[in-house]
């Protein structure tokens, strides 16, 4: 469950006041808004990369407003993936578990499980150089899901993909939702994407977050 309780964000000229959001556990929320309306900023506040100037952030019922990004148990997939250039796909999927000092056998089993779910078994030895946009999104998604977070934040995962890859990733996101039941907040500016995936909708308008008719 994601709760933003009267959150305000200020950065340079950008301002968002008194934002209240509640995404129930297991829901797939789609957040829409024009370019520059603060969608990415809102995701960064939820995963702890940016501090709100006021208000509280509750994740899974806990007040995590002051927690570090590492302590929030949130999987984050930024736009275009932001994959680690020096690591192979295997290492990217294993990264979060390696940082947690998991047993190597458990890590390997998890990487294989994720690679099968995402259809990237054949890419495990590759570095991000030369991966297609769709493949990068799959790897970024796998990396964010690897440590079984309770919340998943997706920043325009279908942006800049061709139609065929886009529909493949939409199917994949549906499959991930069914398979993991993770509470998801998906940022997009595409209405059809919102209709295809969302169980609830939100939109940002003039610095306010409002419900979106689905």
């Amino acid at each position: 469950m994601i709760v933003l309780d009267h959150v305000s964000i200020e950065q340079d000229a950008f301002r968002m006041q008194d934002v209240c959001i509640e995404v129930p556990r297991g829901a797939y929320a789609v957040l829409m808004g024009a370019t520059g309306s603060g969608k990415t900023t809102l995701l960064e506040v939820i995963c702890g990369l940016r501090r709100p100037t006021a208000g509280r952030i509750l994740l899974g019922g806990e007040d995590l407003t002051d927690a570090t990004p590492a302590g929030r148990d949130v999987g984050y997939v930024p736009q275009d993936g932001a994959l680690f250039k020096t690591m192979t796909v295997f290492e990217q999927l294993a990264f979060a578990l390696m940082v947690r000092r998991e047993n190597p056998e458990i890590i390997e089993a998890r990487v294989i499980e994720l690679a099968e779910l995402l259809g990237i078994q054949h890419l495990l030895d590759r570095t991000p150089d030369g991966l297609s946009g769709g493949e990068c999104q799959r790897v970024g998604l796998g990396r964010a899901l690897s440590f079984r977070p309770r919340i998943l934040l997706l920043d325009e995962p279908l942006c800049a993909l061709d139609d065929e890859t886009r529909s493949q990733i939409v199917d994949l996101l549906r499959q991930v939702r069914e398979h993991t039941g993770v509470t998801t907040l998906h940022v997009t500016h595409n209405k059809s994407e919102a209709d295809q995936l969302g169980t609830m909708g939100l939109r940002i308008e003039n610095g306010c977050v409002l419900p979106l008719a689905m």
């Binding site: 990369l49 990004p69 590492a70 984050y76 932001a82 250039k85």
Partner: peptide, 10 residues
């Protein structure tokens, strides 16, 4: 952003 993602990963 890679360092930021790494922080969200733990």
């Amino acid at each position: 952003r890679c360092a930021e993602v790494a922080q969200t990963l733990g």
